[in-house]
Every structure is written in structure tokens, then in C-alpha cells.
Design a protein around this nucleic acid. Sequence first.
DNA 1: TTTCTAAATGAGAACGAGTCTCACTCTAGC
DNA 2: GCTAGAGTGAGACTCGTTCTCATTTAGAAA
Lengths: 136, 136
Amino acid sequence: MQPKRNTWQREAVRASLAQARGFVSAQQLHQALRDGGSTIGLATVYRTLASLVETDEADTLQSPEGESLYRSCATKGHHHHLICRGCGDTVELSANLVEEWSQRVGAEHGFTEIDHVVDLFGLCARCRAKGDGAAA
Amino acid sequence: MQPKRNTWQREAVRASLAQARGFVSAQQLHQALRDGGSTIGLATVYRTLASLVETDEADTLQSPEGESLYRSCATKGHHHHLICRGCGDTVELSANLVEEWSQRVGAEHGFTEIDHVVDLFGLCARCRAKGDGAAA
DNA sequence: TTTCTAAATGAGAACGAGTCTCACTCTAGC
DNA sequence: GCTAGAGTGAGACTCGTTCTCATTTAGAAA
């Protein structure tokens, strides 16, 4: 649920999320805030991120390791992501092709209320130049 | 790594996975085996599933909750899934359209070594008829 | 401005999926 | 049948996330 009060903690999470280049975990965000001198609690970071996701102010996806990652997205509404597995940099994608495909394929098999998870992972030009296959 | 010995535990996991309609979690599989009278350990179920995935005898994906789910897939090689969120029933999809799209979009943004996560979730005809939106 | 109340917070306990350890078991080669 | 060592099971452990509850505080009302 979205909160009824504005707190500096909520603003701090929003700001920290906004200045991150790509997707970050709740733990990373919490650590970054603590490193910046904040006394914010981990539970609050989780709660705030969940509420930002609920109000469409943030996007979330699962890392391949199963961790939840968050990002403050410029594009409102449904979209997908192309994420650099080197530096985490993220490109937002709209993909009508994929939307149509998923609806069509779903219908072909008698499925309704089709939802889909579509995310691309790759190596951005900068990381490739660095020969940086994995490190952040 | 694939094991060098055949054990009844490995066969039991393979069989139990094969008779599951759709994707199941390691925990579910372990419980099912225990319920069936097996004394198999949870660690063994995890180890066996990991090795089945490694030898392409099983597919794995993350549930929206972040749990790893497993399935014994008929289609070898790369493919995607259309999964009923009611009963878990699964349709295997090949999607050249999506493969091409992901490569193209990646290239357009200067990304290489593109990998992708593409899964569709919906409600199959049977579950819709039952008015069954969520339950298993 | 002060008061008041319940929303929001923080610390840490609890939870759950998954991994690791290690003594024991059992496969398979001899 | 004997044996080595691969495989197993119980449970401790890790780590991300959620819950609990006493405390703090935003913001409406006085």
C-alpha cells in the first residue's frame, strides 16, 4: 500500500534509487544509504521499495540468483529491460512485437490473461571494450 | 556435474519430475517423494535437480516469488514456456521471433552476448472454465 | 504553537529457500 | 565378496526477505 505520510526515509530511498544507473538490490541500496551517513533501517528500505513498485515509481525484477532488484524507471507503464551483466546499466525497451506475440501464442493454446516476463541480459559496448565479462 | 553412478534416489527424482504436469519446486518434489514413502533427503533432491538441469534433462526457471522451479521438458535445446498460473500446466514454445528480436534490439543498443528470459504466464482453458484464478 | 494519534520506523527475531559439511551407505569395478 | 570412493541424509549454516513490537514522528486538530 502506498504510505499516507511523507518521511525523509522514503525520500532518501527514492533519491538513492534514482541516482543508481541500473538495477540494484535492496541490500545494496541500504548499504549505500548507510554509507552516506543515513540511519535508515533495512526493513524500511524493503517496505519503501515495495510501495514504490506498487505505485509504479519503480520496477522490479529477479536477478538470475533470485535476488529482487529495483530500478527507478523513466518509462511509466509496461516495458522491458536490456541489462548489462557487466555494469548493470539498463536500457528500457518497449516491445509491441513481444506483446503481440505473447497474446497470440497464448490464444493459440487457449490461454487467457497472459502475462509475461521478458528481460534481456548482455554486455554493453563499454564493458565489452574493457573486456569485462562479469565484474561490476 | 553429472553423476557417475545410478542410484534409486536419482531415478525417483527423475520419475517424480516426469509425472508432474508443470513446473514444480525442489521442496514440492521432496515433499511428494516423502509423501510417497521415500526417505530421500532434501539436499539430494537439490543436487539431483541441478545435475538434471546440467545435462538438459530438466528445465529451470524462477517463479515470480523467486523460487526455482523445475520441469522435465520434452523439447531439448533452447525454448520458452507458457505456464498456467492456475494448474501449472505448461506448453513448450519455440520462438524464433523472440530470438531474433532480442538479438536485434541488443545490437541496436551496442550490446553483445545477448541472453534472455522469456516466459508467459496465463490461465488455461480448463482453469478458466473452473473460474479458477489462483489455486493449484 | 501545542497536542494527539496512528502511520511509519528500526532493531533484531523469525522465516524460508538453498548450500555445505561430514559421517555413513551403497554402487560398481575388481 | 571386497573395496574405494561417489553419493546420500541430517541438520547446521547462509543469506535475502518478512514480521514483531516498542518507539518515533508526520500531520491534522485544537
